[in-house]
Design a binder for these strands. Sequence first.
DNA 1: ATTCTAACA
DNA 2: TGTTAGTA
Length: 158
Amino acid sequence: MRIGELSERTGTPRRMLRYYEEQGLLVPGRSANGYREYDERCVDRVLQIRGLLDSGLPTRVIKQVLPCLNQPRAIHVAGATPETIALLERERDRMTQRIECLVRSRDAISGYVEAVRRAGGPGTGEAAGTPALHAPAALHAPPAVPEPAPAYDLAVSA
DNA sequence: ATTCTAACA
DNA sequence: TGTTAGTA
């Protein structure tokens, strides 16, 4: 498939697709006309990249780690250098902190929404209930699922 | 019609 | 990021 289709199927702007390639995250083939040619695997690949990006990993880390996270890790044992492992551990800890931050933010919002509701605020008795604050999105399947970026403005000062 | 590269604000 | 230009 060409960039347009991949773009639609992953909800990723073409711009970003080219950018990922520039960063060495994606390596599409080229057809005679010079157009990028992507295979089916790229769909999950892009979703995975976006998930990692949304998790706060810089592209250079993703580039280094994507091969390991993917298929037969037996083949990528080479990349499992102690240094890389340490890097991954740092990133994992960062994610943990981020998760904690997200939880606080979500609870803060939840608390507010429910307070408004109890106070008989707008939307009470009306048609729509709260438009699902936590989307039932299939969380982190094999291909990392992009989660909406947190509004750090809302983070509770804890 | 679609994509490509490069570049500027 | 939006956008434009000049191609193939």
